[in-house]
């Protein structure tokens, strides 16, 4: 019996729009005939969907004619791919040696407290996700935290509110 027939739709709430699915299918169609294209496909698809939950992996596997387990293997192997939703803003705290000795651990703990999540998680309102990084190559500026594309230097616990305010403000009022 085909318990995992990939043409089946599972009973999950479909959180993506039709437009997003259309774009995903377009990416798959673009690469379908090229062997070894799973990684670029997943990369582009994650750009559309934000993360790679099982329904998205099914779509990719079926589209490219690959076993589901292979897609899952690749997704779990590369830290770039994620199966948990990402926040609108990605907060990364460096725990590299230089940052660590200058107290980045405390910054991380404070952020965990403020956002109410652990590293690797995403806030319920999907606004922030929090991650640990090991050295971003800016040891002279330690301790460092990176939010989206911005690198914040010599972060202090007291300055955190001020830094985060910037991203609170940029929120799209419609959301």
């Amino acid at each position: 019996m085909n318990r995992e027939c990939i043409c089946e739709k599972e009973g999950v709430v479909d959180e993506f729009t039709e437009e997003q699915w259309r774009q995903v299918d377009a990416i798959i169609a673009k690469y379908r005939t090229k062997p070894g294209s799973l990684i670029p496909v997943l990369e582009e698809v994650q750009g559309i969907t934000g993360y790679l939950p099982e329904p998205v992996q099914r779509r990719v596997a079926f589209g490219l004619g690959l076993p589901l387990s292979q897609v899952y293997g690749v997704v779990t192997f590369y830290s770039f791919f994620t199966m948990t939703p990402r926040g609108k803003h990605q907060v990364r705290v460096c725990l590299g040696t230089a940052c660590h000795v200058r107290g980045s651990k405390r910054i991380l703990e404070e952020l965990e407290h403020k956002l109410g999540i652990e590293p690797g998680e995403c806030t319920e309102d999907r606004k922030y996700s929090l991650d640990i990084v090991r050295c971003v190559g800016a040891c002279g500026l330690a301790p460092v935290m990176v939010v989206d594309e911005d690198t914040h230097r010599q972060v202090k616990v007291a300055k955190l509110d001020q830094i985060m305010q910037k991203y609170n403000g940029s929120e799209n009022p419609e959301e």
Binding site: R3, E54, P67, L68, S69, Q70, V71, G73, T76, Y78
Partner: peptide
Amino acid sequence: GRGAIDFAYRGQNTLVCTFGGRPLALSA
């Protein structure tokens, strides 16, 4: 020709695993 299992995760966490880490009985 079934591909029910593959390597998942990385480094010392590497596992032979089904899709979604399900038990074999619920996999392909």
